[in-house]
Design a protein around this nucleic acid. Structure first.
Lengths: 191, 191, 191, 191
DNA sequence: CTCTAATCGAGACGGTACGTCGCGTCTTACG
DNA sequence: CGTAAGACGCGACGTACCGTCTCGATTAGAG
């Protein structure tokens, strides 16, 4: 832990995270070399490995911070009954952090980050359920809710100049949140 | 053209495609080596490159055939008004070709195939539109329609023993098709 | 073995051996990098490892060939009773292959080659003994005979312009061969 | 100068020298890492460099002390006419400091130390010559005298339990000292 | 017996070489 | 004489060690 308070360590890790964010916006994860990250961060090649075992680990760190931040914000919204307002808040939250989210969700490595975000968000929401899952359909709906929402957000991040926040929130609400809510109230009899 | 009718060429390409399908079910595309493909296909290493420029090209070929087949089936369904029946037909179609779809959509390389499938399907459906796109929201809804449907299908392929065809079709209908249809009828005023 | 007859393999290995010989003449083995060897041989870096596991292995190969050649020549000389002639023949043999011997015995990596040559020559001569070793002194004398001879030869290779073959042969005879012979005839009583 | 009397400095250097001696007994110099030396000495890594510029410098220091000590003892012996007694004294001297000499001359890094010892001893003896060198053969004989003696000593240090001091002294006398002396009295006419 | 400056440990850092692996090209030996 | 086998150049990987450096925390010895 002395290591975490060392100014050099902090500086290096920040530089690496920032470099990764920049590169992730440009290209897919496997087109990003550790050498490129180190160069971009202005850091020695071997130094990279003193902080992260992989570029995957670095991206996981970067994405993890994003996701934690996101979940802290989004989780309370889910409990509230006004879905439209929840969608609006979420969009606004993302909009306030545009550069970061654009880089990580809509950039070249978005696929990877989105997958991790899907996993983490599903975990969080599964644990936040008021009642335990009653069957596979609960899982399916949760999966659909989260993945569709994330997909819509990523799409939006790639088309920011075409759709404004309110429209986007309405779309998310009407295309995902409300239908899922309806399904939850009156699930199919099968299964 | 002599090349395409040459029995050896046909045999080799079939073997390569099958090997790729098998490997794609097991791991992500960048964890698949050309050597592994060639070995699995029982073909010389250099021979691979006489038929495909990369492993990406091979996967594109494999996925392309799947997608063409899929689109040929699914496209007519979209015009019909009975969405539930359309969803049912689509699920049945996939269910009839389980091994292939499980490998390519739900396997380790599913991400890659899904992305390509999303792109191709969106192209096809955009061209099949009765009226031209009237704004970014049409694109957004198309994107949501296709990506959410594919996501639900992939989820299903990973949970086949938990959810039957009819339930799945109902879910797709109620979670995606019908909401999108409603949105199309009464789009948001914004934008 | 198909690999050994492949023209490319032969060419590459020859180039590597020659590069190693050249570099061994210039500097000590641990100041020689595999990269330098590969560059000098006009060969890709990774290619080196397709033929030798180490630079040590390469030097061992190079030295091994030299030593085998040397022993084939020198071994018969040892049986003969005319020590002066034997020394003369040995010096002449080395003199006929000056560039190679100078590089490997008197060059920067001479230490390494000499050690290997000492080992191999002692093994050969131990097996060629007319009677088995009768005690540690036999080993000691053999060690002295071989190491002193090799040392004198290496010295000579570094001072070729100062001492001619005949003088050198006389020195080896009078400083090493004859004294050892005398010791063998009348060993110390101790031990 | 304050630096040399500082108790910590003295302690650290002693520890480093001892660590180097111990490691030199075990493996070759280039298999010894500075980190290993520091760890063995119970000293911080960077501290090493505050006292020696490299591991070579440390070994040079360690070996230098050994050599100075050795030469102080051996040099007077060379003047005396009783060669057997001189050899006996030298062996006894080494035998009295067995652990140190075994580590440095017969250990894994013996090669390096021997080379330095050869150089230093030759220098000393060249300067101690009663008459100046009269030709290359004087150099050659000096080289042979010193290197062969050192080689025999190293051999002995690896076979201490097989050969006693007196026998060893006799061997050195009869195999090296006396033949060289004879050569000096009646050199070859050549050259 | 304190104060102050040097020395210490710990270890991060930029480099560089290592040996491995996969790519895509190009040569070769064999059937 | 065409094709499979596989050698090759390339370049990224992750590891190890080098020698420099920046930290605080002792700690010795001068005042």
């Amino acid at each position: 832990m002395s290591t975490l308070s060392d100014a050099r360590v902090v500086r290096t890790r920040d530089a690496l995270r920032e470099a990764m964010t920049a590169l992730a916006a440009e290209r897919a994860l496997d087109a990003i070399t550790v050498r490129a990250i180190a160069a971009r961060a202005g850091v020695g090649y071997a130094t990279f490995f003193r902080h992260y075992s992989d570029k995957e680990a670095l991206l996981a760190d970067v994405a993890g911070r994003l996701i934690q931040d996101f979940l802290r914000q989004v989780r309370p919204l889910l409990q509230q009954s006004d879905r439209r307002a929840a969608a609006r808040s979420m969009c606004a939250f993302v909009h306030d952090r545009l550069p970061l989210y654009k880089a990580l969700l809509a950039g070249g490595s978005g696929e990877t980050v989105r997958a991790e975000m899907l996993r983490a968000t599903m975990d969080t929401m599964a644990m936040a359920r008021t009642r335990p899952a009653e069957g596979p359909l609960d899982d399916l709906m949760l999966f659909h809710l989260v993945s569709a929402t994330l997909n819509l957000l990523s799409w939006w991040l790639r088309h920011l100049d075409e759709v404004d926040i309110d429209t986007m929130a309405e779309m998310i609400d009407r295309a995902v949140l409300t239908p899922v809510s309806a399904l939850r109230t009156r699930p199919p009899e099968g299964c």
